[in-house]
Design a protein around this nucleic acid. Structure first.
Lengths: 182, 182
DNA sequence: GAAACTATACCGTCCAGACGGTACAGTTAT
DNA sequence: ATAACTGTACCGTCTGGACGGTATAGTTTC
């Protein structure tokens, strides 16, 4: 009977904490000490899993790519159509995907090149799927609307007081998408 | 009868430098030393005009508000209509307004509350003008498209290689706006 | 017995801000 | 008229604290 090693529970906790801090207080305040404290982990423990901050960022970007891939699949399979699904999912709903995305935005804003490249890749995938449904021109309009939704989520920094107002906006956007469809 | 003292030429130079660094290298790297160096001013000189970093940020936000007010006026008076004008002006064209706006975005991303409030105010003004032209529902669609354009400008960090691609996108967005108008 | 930690001390670097000084234009007193 | 003075616009250096990262010795869990 080979002894199974302990599960690295701290690893995910650290990543969650890093994500939460990026969303709530920004990149500047998401220091190693702060992340460790929030994760309920010692600084040594954090650095055991991620030898340096860059490694922690990389892990977060991996998480984003994985979730984005799932999102793309869901988008293709959506019964209401890719465009409508895309708009709906661009609203801040505190899903895992929303969280990594906004968190990563904070890194991109600080001119983190690798993060920017990843974003560009994901956005291109979205655009491709949208174009299949509504054509390349209108796909751009739809994608920019979704980007605008994310832009606002980013400015607010999470699910704030405007949550209900924003979800009302989605209705307006879906109506606009309907008009653009034909 | 007091004659005017020496002109504070450094003040504007500092603000320009701060703006440029925010756009190009992000908030993190826009340190007092970096700003002073870029402005061709000593650190002491910088701190003479702006007693602390927060004061420098405030001055930048003042600049943004002033330019935004002008933009709103231009939007109201635009012959092609407010919506079309808005989309066109949302493209990164390296105008003074574009520059402060993106620069300020970097600050908002770092969870700077005052900056966020200013953004909300400006966005509301835009929305009001747009609503007069195309109604409250479609105004949101248009504003989100513009926000999306800014979001992408922010991710790229200035007028980059994708400038021509983006300006082609504006064509698609204007077509979308046309469809939404009637 | 080894992986997954905790806890703490420490180092080098960077940064915001404080501080003391310099240069010079204009003002006042003589 | 000119010397003494005043206020503005800077310059250059220093310090205290925070942050990323290293190191290391001990503890828990499988």
């Amino acid at each position: 009977m080979d002894t199974m090693p302990r599960k690295p529970i701290a690893r995910d906790a650290v990543l969650d904490a890093f994500e939460a801090l990026l969303i709530e207080v920004g990149e500047r305040a998401a220091t190693l000490d702060a992340v460790a404290k929030r994760a309920g982990v010692s600084k040594g423990g954090l650095l055991y899993h991620f030898p340096n901050k860059e490694a922690m960022i990389s892990a977060l970007l991996e998480r984003m790519d994985a979730l984005a891939a799932m999102e793309i699949e869901a988008m293709k399979a959506a019964p209401e159509g890719a465009a409508a699904f895309f708009i709906k999912s661009s609203l801040w709903a505190d899903t895992p995907m929303d969280r990594v995305f906004v968190a990563a935005t904070r890194l991109a804003e600080v001119a983190h090149e690798e993060t920017r490249r990843r974003f560009a890749g994901i956005q291109q995938q979205w655009l491709d799927v949208l174009a299949e449904e509504v054509g390349p021109e209108m796909a751009k309009a739809v994608r920019y609307m979704g980007d605008g939704l994310y832009f606002n989520a980013m400015l607010e920094g999470g699910p704030g007081a405007n949550a209900s107002e924003r979800s009302a906006d989605v209705g307006a956007l879906l109506a606009a998408v309907e008009r653009l469809r034909d």
